[in-house]
Design a protein around this nucleic acid. Sequence first.
DNA 1: GTCTATAAAAGGATAGAC
DNA 2: GTCTATCCTTTTATAGAC
Lengths: 185, 185
Amino acid sequence: MELFWLKGYGSTSIAEILSRTQINSGSLYHFFPGKQDLLLAVLEAYREGIGPMLLEPAWAGVGDPIEKVFALLARYRGLILETDCTYGCPIGSIALELHEPDEAVRRLLAENFTGWVAAIETCLQEAGDRLPASTDRRALAELVLTVMEGGVMQARTYRDVAYFDRSVEQLRTYFDALEKLACAK
Amino acid sequence: MELFWLKGYGSTSIAEILSRTQINSGSLYHFFPGKQDLLLAVLEAYREGIGPMLLEPAWAGVGDPIEKVFALLARYRGLILETDCTYGCPIGSIALELHEPDEAVRRLLAENFTGWVAAIETCLQEAGDRLPASTDRRALAELVLTVMEGGVMQARTYRDVAYFDRSVEQLRTYFDALEKLACAK
DNA sequence: GTCTATAAAAGGATAGAC
DNA sequence: GTCTATCCTTTTATAGAC
């Protein structure tokens, strides 16, 4: 999991995985028929971890549903800082690295996005009439993912978290405008 | 250029480049000392092509500066459709594929983003007081790039252009809100 | 500058004893 | 289930004649 995140799927060799885990070739291949099966397992682990490993820590002590959205983005900001601005979303990176993924891999990538977006969408629904009734909450939740992925990509390319911050700040301005619109009605 | 776009940098072999171009190994290495030098040349070509190959075609017949922003996004929508929703931005894909790029590569990736964003920023400045004076035009231009990259990533992962469309539609709503704000003042 | 042949290493995966 | 040894392919890059 960590090697695929740090180096990417293609650039991680089986030899490196064996050395890192102190496992022998025979044992690994006993459980995982091929390298791609390792990727499938990793993507399943990410999917299962969205709640307990990502959202719950990010949302500890945060009750307001709209603040939850920005608390999650703040968590990514922390990851960017912790990695000296080299952070890449493991799902997004693999989604762009693999140009002709197996259908099973593609589906797991999509399921990861869907799980993430669904959690945000729930927040936006909890926000009720603080957002305009006309707002497509799913589309807005997808925009939040878009902002995270696009912000992470630019922060990493420039090695500067300010690129992430500016996109998030624009998203905040958009939310403020939506709240104002909902209020006016 | 095309092979790196279609297959990624790591998954494109020199042998494939030789076969595709009908060039022999000796000739290629005479001009390009190593594979990475090919990547540098490709990234320079993309940078030089932003205007003539991307913006000018996308903006043909479009005068309104804000419509130019969405015309460019519409161009990407066309690319997504032309590739059966497998389109990946060549710059963004390589930015996420390479986890420890050479400084020269990283800088060229950043320069590509900067050129793209600068063109959008110019549009936003041309929009003048149709946007609030308080709007950070650079940050907003970066958000446009963010939306393109995030939208392309999701459309590709889901193999469905609707994911791109929804993020762009949200961006449009944001622009509408900004224009309304500017008008009210 | 271009050609063919090939080096040298790294890659994923397997064999077969234990 | 785990161990060591190794197979076979692919990969980037080079050698050296022309």
